[in-house]
Amino acid sequence: MKPKHQRLVLAVVALVALIGAALLAASALRDEASYFYTPATLAKADVEPGKAIRLGGMVQRGSIKRDADGLTVRFVVQDRDATQPVMYKGITPDLFVEGSGVVADGRMDKSGIFIAESLLAKHDENYVPRELKDIDMSAAEHSKDTLAE
């Protein structure tokens, strides 16, 4: 084989590999990328139960409840317009407190409760999960007070 031909063959092989990778990535992205919702967008969207999604918002004040097993925690995530009940089993992050931001990975169950598989709360005092930066915190802050009463 001449060098030119071999180069061509290699280029074709590389192209096929690239296309294969692109197809693999595209199909995996379609199935596995999880969309980010706030309670308000989640209420409008029709998310099928069992699909992996992310939910972000503020933990409603007075909403954290522990089950008798000492491990399961139920709380409500809210933004300005809507609320979403959440259930999580496990040790909550160190900075998981009422009135602060939280991002949860998980799935909706059939009864409309969000079953969280992991919770991402603030890592330190200054850190806000990126998805929450755009949410109008002052509005959430305001509604939180009224809702808590």
Binding site: A33, Y35, F36, R54
Partner: peptide, 10 residues
């Protein structure tokens, strides 16, 4: 205009 995250499953 979409907010998504790509995690371990992908």
């Amino acid at each position: 205009g979409d907010k998504i995250s790509v995690g371990p499953p992908y």
